[in-house]
Design a protein around this nucleic acid. Sequence first.
RNA 1: GCCGGGAUGGCGGAAUUGGUAUACGCGACGGAUUCAAAACCCGUUGCCGCAAGGCUUGAGGGUUCAAGUCCCUCUCCCGGCACCA
Length: 818
Amino acid sequence: MERYDHAAIEKKWQERWAQEGIYRTTDDPAKPKAYVLDMFPYPSGEGLHVGHPKGYIATDIYSRFKRMHGFDVLHPMGWDAFGLPAENFALKHKVHPRIAVEKNIANFKAQLAHIGFDYDWSREINTTDPSFYKWTQWIFLQLYKHGLAFESDEPINWCPGCLTGLANEDLEPDGTCERCGSVIEKKKLPQWVLKITAYADRMLADLDTLEWPEHIKEAQRNWIGRSEGAEIDFDLRFDDPALNENRGPAGEKAHITVFTTRPDTLFGATYLVLAPEHPWVTLALDAAHEGVLPNARDVRAYVEAAAAKDEIERAAEGKEKTGVRLEGVMAINPANGEEIPLFVADYVLGGYGTGAIMAVPAHDGRDHEFAKKFGLPIRTVVEPSPHAGALDTPEFLFTGPGLLVDSGAFTGMPSEEAKAAITEKVGGRLATTYKIKDWVFSRQRYWGEPIPIIHCPEHGAVPVPEDQLPVLLPEVESYEPSGTGESPLATIAEWVNTTCPICGGPAKRETNTMPQWAGSSWYYLRFMDPHDDAYLVAPEKEKHWAPVDVYVGGDHAVRHLIYARFWHKFLYDIGVVSTEEPFARLEFLGFILAEDGRKMSKRYGNVINPDDVVAEYGADAFRTYEMFMGPFENTIAWSTDSIKGAQRFIERIWKLADKVAEDDSPALEPLLNQTIKKVGDDIEAFKFNTAVSQMMIFLNAAEKEGAVGRAQWAALLKLLAPFAPHMTEELWERSGHEGSIHRSVWPSYDESKLVQETATIAVQVDGKTRGTATVERDADAATVTDAAKAAAGKWIEGKTIGKTIVVPNRLVNFVLAE
RNA sequence: GCCGGGAUGGCGGAAUUGGUAUACGCGACGGAUUCAAAACCCGUUGCCGCAAGGCUUGAGGGUUCAAGUCCCUCUCCCGGCACCA
């Protein structure tokens, strides 16, 4: 046979598949369904490098595999094209973002086309398409109507580089912008905020129902950051007796509420710490309360200094503790009535818990450090059991559970038990707090979905009536961010000025847009029913397809997944979707590094373009190589040498077509059955590397055998078809089959043919392998032992065998006496 | 610091969950072919050793007839979170 001409054969089949629509999704309710989804890309101006298609190849293989098992397959592709990167790209290249996005998408599609994917392009979606973002806006309105979207003027993260507000999630740990690296400022701006915290508990609990990698679940748990503890009130006593008479609105005494996860250590609390932003501190420094704090001047200086510090300075200072005493006032420990001092210190965060803590320096590292610096008492109230000694030194710090000491009536109680007991005794409340913050949802930029709200002087924020959706993003010449905190949309008078849906009076549109994450938080639902104008997703379509069976991606998995799960659960609550979770199974994608081991980047000039690889080695070799590189979740460097191995494999299969005989080779039967089993099991488990190696093993054996039967050949082609769709299709046609191999039925294996009739067993003496023996499968122990003795030869000659271990069909181990 | 995941030849990696460690591929070496080269084909290839043999899954200890796999201690690497009380 002639050499495999990949360019010609790929072109032939790509055209024919498109023409015949063999990958069309059918929405057939009679069939089992498989919804296989890639995290859809943002179509950047750089185009694809060889790392991008890795996940797409995996889903392509998986979806082909499912199709060959009779599944109705949904394997779609679309574009996440709103957001800052697209807008910044457009600004830099001085084109309108819409034009830039169109061009980039066309480029991406052309690149993808070369690789031979089975996407059903009739279901393509684009988040910037008004028929799509109509529904993004609709979801926002539902959130608003259910009280989960609200306006807030809390200070937000402002990026002076991107000129927009950002969510907490958009910041690097050091407080810089993840996009441009600018130092984030706090800025007071009216913002739309989504109440994601309302779903924190359910998002946490339902993680247990998901077939996801542990590290992704763990990252989500960290992000939600639930901690259980107690809120405990500490009454205050002022030096000025008059102040002690003051009562709150409900007649309560002045007090500070702290949050703690260790109420069991209450007897060891030797001071309180308030965050600089704590409302009580703000109040005490208020002009109206002059004289409450004798050292108000020092406190004010500290609070102002803390406010002026940005996140970077805080990070640079590390854990060096600072703070200032609040003079003129003491707190009363409700456990023992003891008076303890109060401090303001920025190691306590205003935004977490109650913004105030009880400090237990013997049992908390940070309090310990602060107490040593300020010379405060360190009192041990929990000891490890049994008594470990050396507990009386002031240096001692013990953060584990143990038995209570010096804790009044609770002395001797296990600390876990004491948590509830002490909380109850002092009138505290069990409380749960979260690290996750509500989602700041406004961006002061042009390229995003307009938030469908109208501000009426009479009626306030009024939702745009649903029949007026979508609120179209106006076409404009200039869309530069204003930098003032106003959206560029604010300058378009004819767009902004409208009428109130309630009273018809003059009103203004909301000019902020949604963040980049909006569209991607629900796009997977639209693929189920992409052209429906009446429904976000029609109920019967949703019931057929939901949930996504396998979701594949990497990178910003944590944030995207948390936002999407939040919206999905909300949509479940309002009856739009029928499942509690959007993505039943998640496969995490390991990246491909450049050949030099660095990240592939234009900056390093080490980018490899899949177009070039496909042109040189062929799409099938490219696909097979990326799957053979190693475990799917591993990050591995590209190797031009290694792709040649995949190419050789493809070409050796091609040449094996010359060796096809009428009758099956009996010698190959056990191996073929093993191969059918292993390739199938491995694809199901996303272990593509070992699936490929098993096919290589079969190929090696078939070459050695010199012939492969027609039926065996057909089975082999089918196993390889998901990996190498072009070449297998060509060979399928050449061997006289009707119809596409990709619509053929996956081969089955015969359980009884998986094993050979003989077994090669290892022969060990004292646990060391000294040879092998070939015996009939399932031969009796005596026969096996005799054969093994012969094989052990000189190693047991003249020795006494103390014990013989026989593992059927595996090994015999002779343990020599003494 | 806390949490999660790892460490196997020159390289990517495999190993039925306690049963022949290094499958498969790359690279390397030798051969064949060629005027020559590429490609293709055949053979060798964990380490030490001429050999007999010995040693080997990050380090050290343990359990077992048998440990990459189980248990204990430690080191290093990757990822997430990080003054979250």
